[in-house]
Design a protein around this nucleic acid. Structure first.
Lengths: 189, 189
DNA sequence: ATAATTACGGACTGATCGGTCAATAATTGA
DNA sequence: TCAATTATTGACCGATCAGTCCGTAATTAT
């Protein structure tokens, strides 16, 4: 008995995500979000409580999209090293292509995690989920399949290298450094 | 022939740095900077062109302070591994103490590097300088003293782990993960 | 002392911020 | 067809933003 919404929420979220990703929470103006989504503010405020809710929803969408991709690779075929090779080589070739957008989750960690409790909770949770996925991927190969302790340590270490590479990328570090960090990490597996 | 400035620029810069460090560029209001420095806006604008100049000056001061400390350790005594042990253990105990402030340079990389050219240039430069310092530290021990290629790769890798740990810290990752990443990195040296 | 100069601090600026309101358009069930 | 409901839109809100102006205080050379 009423008019139907004309836009798709997930499509709009892609625009919202893009603005927050590039500009950070405070740097993202509602004006920019309107432009990126092609929607009027009010249409967005009907769906989301406030700017903060848009941010969290965008973060959740980012994680979901990235996790699907990562999961496909890390729970797919090949040895543990081969699986991580796909992930890390992906980072290197992204940087090589000139894509310096970095990682939205990583941005959220440095930008908002210490200022907003829900963001902190979400980011910490997302990182735990990535870490768990890393562990699962390592588990398919020796010595990780038999040494749980080593597996967990290596998963944490790979997580750190992963975020480190994304920071280096966003800082326009030379491709050489990004490639070296990636290859060194892979060699350790 | 004129009145003298009553405050110390570097002391003021510490306050400025603190606000930008915690809140990011856009999240830092001049009002907050006034409160943190105990100075009136106008006193700051007499010294710095604008907010952006304050940000860059704060970044420069951060790098200078951190580099002095890092240099003392990394060009000091002990094997390469021992030197990095001091650095990485420092990160772990900082996190253990509940200090989740992270790294200002790392924040700047994710927050402003892609939005402001001077910031990007500065951050990229600072990272290059840290990388160089890492190389120097590695050079004192075998096999790095004889294998330049391995040394450079390891320096880049350690740089990535370093920033990764700082991101994990700011995201309130469990101390266990931070410690594991640190120990794994040290074991690789 | 006084003239010259500069620091200080609070009032002020226009612009933009996130968020809301109210008038209008569209859709639905009855 | 019409009553009810919701989406859309642009105007609008007070607050805050970065930055400026200007009257006053302080300092120094003369």
């Amino acid at each position: 008995m009423a008019r139907l919404r004309e836009f798709d929420i997930d499509e709009a979220l892609d625009g919202v995500m893009d603005v927050f990703w590039r500009n950070g929470y405070e740097g993202a103006s509602m004006q920019a979000i309107e432009a990126a989504t092609g929607l009027n503010k009010q249409s967005l405020y009907r769906v989301f409580e406030d700017k903060r809710a848009m941010y969290l929803a965008a973060l959740a969408r980012y994680e979901q999209e990235e996790m699907v991709k990562a999961q496909a690779v890390l729970t797919g075929e090949g040895s543990a090293r081969q699986r991580f090779q796909i992930i890390f080589n992906g980072l290197v070739s992204l940087a090589a292509k000139g894509d310096r957008s970095g990682c939205f989750l990583c941005n959220a960690a440095t930008d908002q995690a210490q200022l907003d409790a829900p963001t902190q909770e979400f980011v910490a949770g997302a990182m735990r989920r990535i870490e768990k996925l890393f562990r699962t991927a390592l588990s398919v190969s020796e010595p990780y399949s038999s040494d749980e302790k080593l597996r967990d340590a290596r998963a944490a270490s790979l997580l750190a290298v992963y975020f480190g590479i994304r920071v280096l990328t966003k800082a326009n570090a030379p491709l050489r450094a990004i490639r070296a960090a990636s290859e060194d990490a892979l060699a350790s597996i």
